Computed example of a mutant assay.
Amino acid sequence: MVDGLVIAGGLAGAAGLAGVVAALARRRTPYLAAGHGLARPDDIDPLPAVLRRGLGGLTVPVTPGPRGELFLGPGAPQPGRTLRRLVLTPLFARARGHNGRITRDQKVPFRLVVEFTGAVRDAETLLRAYRMLDQQLRDHSGLLSRCAGDDLTPGAVTVSIAGIVDVRELLVTEEVRYAFAEGSFDDLGSRSAPPALVPTISEPWSRRFGWDGLEPIPAEERHLLHAMVRSAHDDGRTVRISGLPKGPRSAREAIWTELGAAGVDVIADHDQRHLARHLRRHPVSRWAAQEPLPTRAVRRPSPRPNAPRPERRRQSV
């Protein structure tokens, strides 16, 4: 009898523990709009980890290959290791499965940065690769942030082009564009790089700052950081900082904290796991899109020719 009670109690305890585990498994990871993962060159499938941790963006290095396809991973292009198969298709499939959002609590677009890398510098090859990427994006136009003239409309995903290819002259000629150029603080106030073309200022930390997080930040560097971020926001742009110095985790967390205090919109790092944990404990800001993200996935809308442009409004893309 006693043994039976012990067994029953053990089973009840196990059932309770299983319930707790199941409840934890069902707990949704919050969408961390300020968190941005940097894929390493040898990571050929970087998207799942970023989505699992709830980060709000990903920079993925790509190399042009045969017929203009963009490939991930080191070495020669390998079948199946394309940006389309490993990043674009699963990302947009996820958005379609969540009524036009990457996660249910998403309030601003997921920021995908396609960074052209590699030894190929031939202008014709790079142009062909961009044209291929542009077509692949237009296949998912209903889910993308887009710009018609000066009017920006946020979508589930905002795509920016970075790296060795300069797409500004190409983008500015498109009547409706579904990708944007990356900018620097030097673009602030520039008529040739308006926020509708270059909505995000993206720079490595080491380009303008020398603080490594090991000691308290110098007052002049803190003042410069706050002033530059404020200037970017006043110019209608968001700010993403990457390229943080290597060092102990405590030093990196100190830099993350200062970036958050300065109002940096997006913090990018290779250390995705600890960055996500830090942002869950120390949110950068409360995000609120000026317009809700789309609730329906439209595959390829056909815009009306000569349609009147709506009044210009500043959007978060």
Results as ranks from 00 to 15, higher is better:
40 R>L: 13
18 A>M: 10
5 L>Q: 13
90 P>T: 03
157 V>C: 07
308 P>Y: 03
82 T>D: 06
284 V>P: 03
50 V>M: 05
231 S>M: 11
4 G>Y: 10
34 A>F: 01
166 D>I: 03
301 P>M: 08
23 A>C: 04
218 P>G: 12
173 T>E: 11
213 G>Q: 11
140 H>E: 15
260 G>H: 09
150 D>L: 13
243 G>L: 03
136 Q>R: 12
176 V>M: 07
211 W>A: 11
251 A>V: 02
134 D>W: 04
260 G>I: 04
51 L>W: 01
177 R>G: 03
88 L>I: 12
166 D>E: 13
212 D>V: 10
111 R>N: 07
206 S>V: 09
147 C>P: 05
286 R>F: 02
259 L>P: 01
163 G>A: 12
194 P>I: 07
42 D>N: 10
182 E>A: 08
291 E>V: 15
46 P>M: 04
256 W>V: 06
285 S>L: 14
33 A>L: 01
224 L>K: 14
149 G>C: 09
216 P>Y: 12
232 A>S: 08
143 L>C: 09
170 L>W: 15
222 R>K: 15
185 F>C: 00
63 T>N: 08
32 L>C: 05
141 S>P: 09
122 D>C: 01
270 H>I: 11
189 G>D: 00
92 F>R: 05
3 D>M: 11
290 Q>L: 14
175 E>Y: 05
17 L>E: 00
103 T>F: 06
67 R>C: 01
9 G>P: 13
193 A>E: 00
28 R>W: 00
119 A>T: 13
230 R>H: 13
201 I>R: 07
192 S>M: 03
78 Q>K: 14
253 E>Q: 15
264 V>Q: 07
58 L>Y: 04
266 V>D: 07
232 A>M: 06
239 V>D: 01
177 R>L: 01
309 R>W: 08
101 R>D: 07
217 I>N: 06
29 T>N: 01
82 T>R: 13
48 P>M: 03
115 E>N: 10
35 G>V: 03
229 V>E: 01
166 D>L: 06
240 R>C: 02
186 D>Q: 06
292 P>K: 11
219 A>Q: 15
166 D>G: 07
77 P>S: 11
11 L>S: 09
238 T>L: 07
189 G>A: 03
100 G>Q: 05
77 P>T: 13
268 A>G: 10
117 T>E: 14
81 R>G: 02
158 T>M: 10
276 A>R: 04
78 Q>G: 04
169 E>R: 15
286 R>D: 14
89 T>G: 01
159 V>L: 10
313 R>N: 09
301 P>V: 04
257 T>N: 14
276 A>I: 05
137 L>I: 04
255 I>T: 05
110 F>K: 01
236 G>Q: 04
2 V>L: 15
149 G>L: 08
99 N>S: 14
306 N>R: 15
272 Q>V: 12
179 A>L: 00
53 R>I: 01
220 E>C: 06
223 H>V: 04
281 R>K: 14
231 S>V: 01
239 V>A: 02
305 P>H: 12
60 V>F: 06
158 T>S: 14
13 G>R: 08
204 P>T: 02
164 I>T: 13
